[in-house]
Design a protein around this nucleic acid. Sequence first.
DNA 1: ACAGAAATAT
DNA 2: GATATTTCTG
Length: 598
Amino acid sequence: MDKPMSAPYYGMLEEIHVMLVDHDKDFVTEMVDLLMTHDYKVTTVSSASTAMSMLSKGKKKIDVMIISVHSSNLISFELLAQTVALDIITLFICDEHNEILAKKALEEGAYLYLTKPFGEEIVKILWQFILRKNLQREKAREGLEKNEDQMNVDDTVGDNEEQHGEKKSVTNIEDQSNTFHEAENNVISNRKYELRRKRGRTRTKKINEEENSSIDTNKVVRRKTYMEWTVDLHAKFMKAVQQLGEGRCFPKEILVEMNVPGLTRMQVASHLQKCRRNKWRAPKERKYTRRRSCRGPSSDSQQRGSFRKFGKMPRLQTNVSNLQLNPNQTQKGLEFPFPTLSTDSILARGESSIQQQLYHPQLQVQPLNLSIDNSFNNPSLLALNNVGDGIQQQHEIFFEMLGSQGIQGQNIWNTNYRSGQVFDSGDHHTQSDYNLDFNAALGTTYSGSGTIFDTDVGNATVTDYNLNVNVDNLTTYSGSTVVSEGSVENMTINGLGAPTKNFQQYIGESNMFSPSNFVAASNESNIVGSGSHEKENSDAYFDFNNINTLFQNHGPPSANLPNEQGSEFYQVCSDDQVVTTQSVQFPGIASYPEKSSK
DNA sequence: ACAGAAATAT
DNA sequence: GATATTTCTG
């Protein structure tokens, strides 16, 4: 197709839907062509009445309505009234110029009155109307918000705001419109809900539609209050988050950083919430409603990690569409999922509902997901979950596993983790100098398939991430992946006791990374490459001693983790024996530093 | 005042 | 069924 500059003029608009109302087939064809050329989504309707019924169903989101008016078409004006009420930009198009008609149309709220044939220019700039209107609306909403804050009025909710305080009599709408129309909602057994109800949620658009027959053009009809998080907007959001640093991205700061007029803190917070849970999909993606139909763990185990993001920077899953955050680099949230296998650390087991109860927002809780396949196809033995508590600023981390003992048939082992230092991203503004050392020593046996080191390091701005893996005496290996899902700039593998040429297989087979600088050493050689093997120099250093068995996956499937395969469970960190990821990527945890004390 | 979870609206 | 908004709590 030849639409070289498609997106540019949409600004922050995702898609513009145009409805064209005309029975003149030729004209329709022509217009549709034209509109499509400029990337509008077009719906055509042959009559005004059809259009009206479509609108009333409200199935389709329409931004612009183009109504052809032939002869004295009363119904066209009815349609116009409706579109105006719905806050849809409406263009009247006539065969010939008619001043009276034009005036009337404009009076009734039409945006433009055009005569037939009209230049492409108009179509080109159509999007500006939308954007402008949106901006206006946002501004108005902002004003409203401010008003509410100031006068502490909490129920002017529904309608047009009297910005100039003149008549805040609106306050009186009280609860009358707060109907119980959804009374059959089963949930309402709770007192809380009753209370909530009393506060009232007045938001009946129907009312507006009726009463707005007399249109006041500069009054924003607050109807559809939804704003959509477009890909662009989301990209901005992500950029802001990154810029702020993952440990300190609060809605308010993100808002400021994003600098999008009209965007509210609430909206940012809400989006943040969504993202943390990894529940957000780009609008386009939503069409393909990913039915997780098969609850069975088999199908898409490593599809999207489904790590829930609490207190952490949301990592954009690969399927979160084509947001081009940084065109040249893939987005990699700084995240080291650490399905800690210490049974000590698994306080909650079984059903997630129970876990939910255990979960306290202010506690350090990490969601875990082992993303284990039904047949241990790709167990994630060790994944590091961006460790750090947001307070300490050390650049190193020292993990030690003592007395590890494999469990037959499982890919977990009993061990105590001791978390010494903290891996904190706070000081690394661009995350440009992480070092991670992984050191597994002594009689390690690895058999079966799985992932020893499963991490996804770095993000778009990582420039030189060093991963040093030191696996001594990895005597048996017959699996698939040692390091997976990583994207590591510099890689040092040390002490593998295997010829160099085989190293790649240790790095995994399918979804592996390809370090731009891959260095490996055999067991007796020392560090090769950048080699910050010493704890002192490393941002992260892992030393796993006495690991008798890492993997033994030959056991029956029944021998599984305490939780169900593929299910999520929470890890509650309450004391220092229990390990783990004390990271606070997203703030909100008790350990958040002083900051922003006003 | 504000972050975050959860309820609710669309 | 999903996303955005609003309420509510800490």
